[in-house]
Design a protein around this nucleic acid. Structure first.
Lengths: 224, 224
DNA sequence: GGAGAAGTGTGTCATAAGTCACATAACTTT
DNA sequence: AAAGTTATGTGACTTATGACACACTTCTCC
């Protein structure tokens, strides 16, 4: 159900602490705890109180939502360096998705109260976070416009370009997942990808997409 | 073009200062300037630097976007008590829509630098604002999900219910505007409204919709 | 290495909504 | 009150995409 929405909420926000000074960062990391998760262990579930912020040190955490029919859909993979769970922490509301360890993982944990106390002591950091949240609001709005107004090929091309920025030209994702991300049916995704394969823009393998012609792809993403 | 996106960015955020203490509010209002606008006067345009936050004391300000083809579309009306321009102020980016006085108006103006300085002195306020921005992020996500996944009748019913909360059962809006808000073509909106008129859920007049049966309407909004 | 699962390729069909093209009705302006 | 402008109503047509159905391929795990 809430697939598309969650996707937007959860996308990586590594930038959150990107431009803090090293001293601020040091004081912040002093507040962190460490938590270990075994493969398949559940970190939190939809509806849980959002009492901590997490960052991945080692391993992988899947952010997923239990569709009401029982099927689970993965919304994102968080790898080393990725942060997640910030929105729930900042506003004190409950989690909006589930988080499960995809392999044995080590996380750092920043508890809500510690984080808020820190912000209160360091208003400059609070202001930076405000700016980042605003950027996110803008970004979400653009995304919303895009997904409502742009046709599927454009959305698909944009997502592939975004994935290429993370993965390089060999994007490791199933067509089903891609469909979830882009808000379209798997079959429609497949048909578009086939068309592009025939134009030599990309190649397809099981669970993998090889981007051959980024120039054309970005052109499509720009909607000509 | 950017109609839908802007809509989400701009929606009223009166809640922003809702739960500040009176002392905090007092100090804040000391920082405000006053500005008068004549009917039709332009306050700011898309692309302008976002150097101030505005609130309406008297009058009305239209938030609109100049579609690239020259047609102007109104995204929202800000009346007395409404705040606008906060996102641009908080993150220092440029305006994403135009603001024009719909009648002679009096605004209070809070300049970016003053506001940020205030936040730095009052970290508790900053934290409240962070929470509000987070709520907005959640709200946007829900809205995004809704608009992508729900069929037009549901979106339309939801918007009408929301408007009813502001306007009462006589909603004063053109079908064109309604189309912009729900991200649909004017004709499609009209057809759906006609269908509902035949079911006695509402009545139509030029520029006005009379909601007759809110029970049915909210049922549709809940998607049964 | 065989069985089953998970991922992929493709055809057919149904349908919601956009587009275009007008007709009509309601306000405005002079 | 006539003329012009804006809002609404409706028909005909087109199109993108979702839904279902099924074949085929590639992995994985006993």
């Amino acid at each position: 159900m809430s697939t598309q929405a969650e996707f937007a909420v959860i996308l990586k926000m590594n930038a959150m602490f990107a431009d803090l000074g090293t001293d601020e960062l040091q004081r912040l990391s002093n507040l962190c705890h460490t938590q270990h998760l075994g493969n398949g262990e559940v970190l939190f579930q939809k509806g849980d109180p959002g009492d901590a912020l997490f960052g991945v040190r080692r391993g992988q955490v899947r952010i997923e939502t239990g569709a009401s029919d029982g099927s689970r859909l993965t919304l994102n993979f968080m790898g080393p360096g990725d942060l997640f769970g910030e929105v729930a922490v900042l506003d004190g509301q409950s989690r909006t998705a589930d988080a499960t360890a995809g392999e044995a993982s080590e996380l750092f944990v920043l508890r809500r109260e510690d984080f808020l106390a820190f912000l209160e002591r360091e208003p400059k950091v609070a202001i930076k976070i405000i700016a980042l949240l605003c950027q996110r609001i803008r970004w979400q709005s653009e995304r919303m416009e895009e997904s409502m107004l742009q046709p599927l090929p454009v959305r698909l091309a944009r997502r592939l370009c975004a994935l290429a920025a993370d993965f390089g030209s060999e994007v490791h994702i199933s067509q089903e997942q891609l469909g979830v991300f882009v808000g379209a049916a798997r079959e429609s995704v497949n048909r578009q990808l086939q068309a592009w394969r025939k134009e030599a823009i990309l190649d397809l393998q099981r669970g993998r997409i090889l981007l051959r012609n980024m120039t054309k792809l970005t052109a499509i993403a720009r909607n000509e």
